[in-house]
Design a protein around this nucleic acid. Structure first.
Lengths: 133, 133
DNA sequence: TTCAATAGTTCAGGAATTATGAACTATGTG
DNA sequence: CACATAGTTCATAATTCCTGAACTATTGAA
């Protein structure tokens, strides 16, 4: 045990910005990563809360848990989700409603754009004779 | 002059993705930087074309021209603007209409969110007794 | 209480990306 | 031609991102 530094690797409580602190820049940055959009979409989709490790990427290989943890942190600190310890695991809820009050239509537009993009990609893949990869 | 490598620092023609190649991810990434949003807003605002160096940041210090050049490249390669040489200078036009056909409402929502954010920041600054910085 | 298991965080370093001064290209004008 | 202007490209420094290893926190036995 580390005696000299009592406050060291101590797990700080999760950071959640107040809704007025949420910036467009941070939201766009958070959602400009495909893994994070997928995570966020899943959390918004399920209305019940989601634990971190329940996320499995669609086609690709597994994502290391330290990386996942960072992705969740970015989403939290952008104000898009709220994480809360529930026993040994973490439960994440979307802050969609709050954010939508702050920036009406922003998340809806981004979500719709992603849906369109995925739909077009699927169509293009079918046409060229290949499915997912 | 460099004799050995004829094709070296040769300036390649500007890259512009076809509109179907434009991804939501690239758009969000491009617009998640305050300097780039400001540039894009200015190009969309003026309906006439804009040369690169006519951009001056609002409150901050001048941005080096190599950095500006990279920002324009990111916007171009995201499909948000089109750059075209006109004599010695470069003219930039927005591809707003094309992108809006691809992803209806996306750019409008982002623009509106930014407007809201700037408005709120101004109001907060006035309340706390300070103007810009 | 102590040990083990589970879920996620933090740290350290390397990988990847971004910023920028210096050198260069490209075009227009004496 | 030389020179000026506008922007790009290169090289490298600064920054951010990814990830294995070590850690914290909580639960559930033994």
């Amino acid at each position: 045990m580390c005696v000299e530094e009592l406050e060291w690797g101590a797990m700080r409580p999760l950071v959640h910005p107040a809704i007025e602190e949420v910036t467009v820049e941070a939201i766009l940055h958070a959602l400009s990563d495909p893994v994070r959009v997928a995570i966020f979409a899943e959390i918004v989709g399920q209305e019940c809360t989601q634990k971190c490790s329940s996320f499995v990427p669609v086609g690709g290989e597994a994502i290391p848990k330290s990386t996942l943890s960072q992705h969740f942190r970015v989403l939290r600190e952008a104000g898009l989700i709220r994480g809360e310890r529930r026993g040994v695991e973490m439960h994440n809820v979307s802050r969609y409603v709050e954010v939508d009050q702050m920036y009406p239509g922003l998340l809806a537009a981004i979500g719709q754009a992603h849906t369109l993009q995925v739909g077009r990609a699927a169509k293009a893949a079918k046409k060229s004779g290949k499915k997912t990869k």
